[in-house]
Nucleic acid binder design. Sequence first.
DNA 1: TATTTGACCAAGA
DNA 2: ATCTTGGCCAAAT
Length: 107
Amino acid sequence: MFKKSARSLLSFNEKVWELCKKVPKGKVTTYKEIAAAMKTKAYRAVGNALKRNPYSPAVPCHRVVGSDGALVGFARGLKKKAEMLRKEGIKIKKGKIADFEKVLYRF
DNA sequence: TATTTGACCAAGA
DNA sequence: ATCTTGGCCAAAT
């Protein structure tokens, strides 16, 4: 058997990025959902990971929003994030996702 | 190794 | 509805 490594080869952050890439265009996800998908409650750490986002263009981090569908935090500015999402077919209303439930992607 | 930091969240005033 | 507080977890320093 293998050693006592019950821990995945991927770092927590890497998992986050992988999940982000899974989100299809035209859909969004939340920090909480990502954390839940990883069987953890570290939604905060998720945000931290995305903030660093070493793979800036490779990972569509703009598709990740707050649990309320609010556009929380974006390194390039929330304004930009809103436009990018709108471009993908997601409607933004007053800094929040319109029809949040509809565009929310679940793993 | 210990402390600080966050792109969060839910509940309270 | 807005603001504050406490809790939560992993990564970075």
